[in-house]
Amino acid sequence: MNEMYPKRAANAAFRVLGGEAIVMNPEDSSLFSLNATAAVIWRAADGRRSLREIVVSDVCVEFEVEPEDAMREALEFASALAEHGILILAETPEAGA
């Protein structure tokens, strides 16, 4: 599988509270609640680090989960948010990485 580099949509409004995140889509005001695992990925999604790197370095360390299980869930989560346009999945990292 190719690497993907997640990045939060520029206008998405969000707040991380108690480890969880609330995200609002600026285009249609739809609301998303992210659990603690998803919130870690959301916070790290700057377009410079790959999803795999975020999962291995952040998610697995913080939650003590197996990389493959965590990666499967991360892909699901990232794809769902990408469908709503609030997470951008690029095949290459952003400049400045």
Binding site: N11, A13, M24, N25, S29
Partner: peptide, 15 residues
């Protein structure tokens, strides 16, 4: 109550 799909207003309402 929020009817407008506008990034600036969404940011304000969220804040």
């Amino acid at each position: 109550l929020f009817f407008a799909h506008d990034p600036v207003l969404v940011a304000n309402v969220f804040a």
